[in-house]
Design a protein around this nucleic acid. Structure first.
Lengths: 213, 213
DNA sequence: GATACTAATGACACTCAGTGCCGTTGGGAA
DNA sequence: TTCCCAACGGCACTGAGTGTCATTAGTATC
């Protein structure tokens, strides 16, 4: 999952100016996590290194687990908008593939951080667990779209399973990316989706018709 | 996911006898969680109610999040054995369906607790997050089996995606079960797997051949 | 330039989860 | 009865996360 854009340069008109940014703190944290490990790094370490107070850090991030994630919700909103704005004549799985690839596009200057980030998120147990909450929102977006396209209720088995499958495909591709230092993330994701693509589309449409007929 | 069997009546030959059981503590905790909510219940509350020391509770369960789960690892080992002992002439998806249904069979006296348990595990954010770690082991068992059947490496995209899909199917069925008070869990699971069943089997075999050819 | 307003900051104290340490308890065996 | 040993439970400690509040540093107004 792509994470970690930054707060725009929007100046508040009133009050004291923020002394730091989400990205700055996140980068400091990622560096420390990679150096000493997640569990061996305390919130105080991060706050000290970032030159801010402990209490301030908790105003930027609700928990230690959220530090590696950036502004996920904004990206998710963008994906929802992207999906719902797509023309209906594009096959559903292709819509999903395109939107998910776009979601996982990361600006080049974030690349080195992104790899560390995902390595942590997928391999540190605490973070792996916490990720579920983010994935749930992500799945929701996928399920919504599938449900709309197939004219099924959101909680129906088909959209739900489809969302899980998409998540699985993404995470499998991410694991490959982390293993194989040389490959491009978007290539792996694209390949993975194309491999599963048509078969799932067929499957879902069949299953849908089967359920109706 | 099925959880919550109990420690056998095996007497230790030496040392002081245990003063309680996993099930007893788990049941006390579940009751309190349902009464006041998970976050509003402290470890001290549970220990006091169970009549044991706080320190003792942490010897039975490594964390508060583990309280609703019973002896999951034992059940998982049973499922692994079940799968690997199945004859090869049974179609793969049917093997999975049978093993997963069996995994989710719960002794009747546990039924009322099981519903509370799963309601908590699927709807309390902390627990939902923690569940991921259990699901990861569960997915691993499924992926292993699929990989063996299709003669693919475990980390390959197909077994991994298949495992995610199976998990998704189970969780979707569990959600339906919790919503619809009257339905039987195993019926819903069975129905869900039969619905997705053949299409996935076809899909995976096609994908597998496609990847090879 | 002084004053008023406002939002970000950081210090402090507190709760609670989880851990290490260690003396105590109680059941079975000698 | 005595010895052995595992389970127990008290205590102190670390670290995450929260509520409160005075302080700081910007902007707008006079």
């Amino acid at each position: 999952m792509t994470v970690g854009r930054e707060d725009g340069p929007v100046r508040p008109r009133l009050g004291r100016a923020p002394s730091t940014t989400h990205a700055e703190i996140s980068h400091v944290a990622l560096t420390l996590f990679m150096e000493r490990g997640f569990d061996q790094t305390t919130i105080d370490d991060i706050a000290r290194e970032a030159g801010i107070g402990r209490r301030t850090l908790f105003r930027y991030f609700p928990s230690k687990n959220d530090l590696p994630w950036g502004d996920f919700d904004t990206l998710l909103g963008r994906m929802r908008a992207h999906l719902s704005g797509m023309p209906d004549d594009v096959p559903m799985m292709e819509q999903l593939r395109i939107a998910i690839l776009e979601f996982n596009r990361v600006p080049e200057e974030e690349w080195p951080y992104h790899r560390r980030r995902m390595d942590l998120l997928l391999h540190v147990p605490t973070l792996l667990a916490h990720s579920t909450l983010r994935y749930a929102s992500w799945r929701q977006v996928v399920a919504e779209h599938v449900a709309r396209r197939l004219e099924l209720p959101e909680h129906d088995l088909i959209p739900q399973t489809m969302a899980w499958t998409c998540l699985g495909v993404c995470l499998a591709a991410y694991e490959q990316w982390l293993d194989d230092g040389s490959a491009q993330l978007l290539d792996l994701l694209d390949e993975a989706f194309r491999l599963i693509d048509e078969r799932i589309d067929t499957k879902v449409v069949q299953a849908h018709r089967g359920a109706q007929g």
